[in-house]
Design a protein around this nucleic acid. Structure first.
Lengths: 110, 110
DNA sequence: TTAATATGAAACCAAATGGTTTCTTATTAT
DNA sequence: ATAATAAGAAACCATTTGGTTTCATATTAA
């Protein structure tokens, strides 16, 4: 029924090759497999598998055009990550505000 | 020399057990291994290994107190993730602004 | 129509991952 | 002093991961 993703976003972005794929796709709107493969020291087949994982996590979309498969970034899938992160935002905000107080006190003592 | 982390943050948060550990530590300031282990259906040893990985990624700190090892969240390590994410923020902002225009036009047509 | 290109599928492999159990050691409570 | 508790280390194991090579198929160019 619903879109049950086989791979989750966290696992998908864990691999540096896949993060680089996302970066490349963020710069070009749409790219096909062979063009993407040029940027990696591995076989086309390996890159294809990485793209499959990204696709299953909803991070890229695929469409067939003639004999090529073209890939496109699907950045909304990253919102899940953003939301997860926001859980922790208060913590570093606290640390920063503590630091700010410290700095202000130091200045007052000079 | 410098803190060359054996595990990176991306890989560390890829595992759901480790994400749950971070969440638990975000709620309690400091916890020791056995207390953390209670929340998982696996052995203490397994949890200990996960904590080791989080520690190597800089996401938690360990300190020995008597016979216990106490863990503490180190949320600054998540800033790397936040920065990585910000690379893509423009994309969903664009999508949202496109959507906003659409909604405004729809409203204008009613 | 024949050759070249773009890709996917399948079988395979080594290394990494996520778990286990057993054994030791250090610390604390009785 | 002895027993109980907390944890790490080591050896082991099955599954997953990230890669390979080979083969087949569809599309396009000459």
């Amino acid at each position: 029924m619903s879109s049950a993703p086989k791979h989750d976003v966290f696992q998908a972005i864990a691999d540096p090759t896949r993060r680089k794929l996302l970066r490349l796709l963020s710069e070009k709107e749409e790219m096909h497999l062979t063009a993407l493969s040029k940027h990696f020291p591995m076989s086309r087949t390996a890159v294809s598998k990485h793209l499959r994982i990204l696709s299953e996590a909803g991070l890229v979309s695929e469409r067939k055009v003639g004999r090529e498969t073209r890939y496109r970034l699907q950045p909304e899938a990253l919102l899940e990550l953003k939301e997860w992160l926001s859980q922790y935002e208060q913590f570093w905000e606290n640390k920063i505000s503590v630091l700010k107080h410290f700095v202000e006190n130091e200045e007052a003592n000079e």
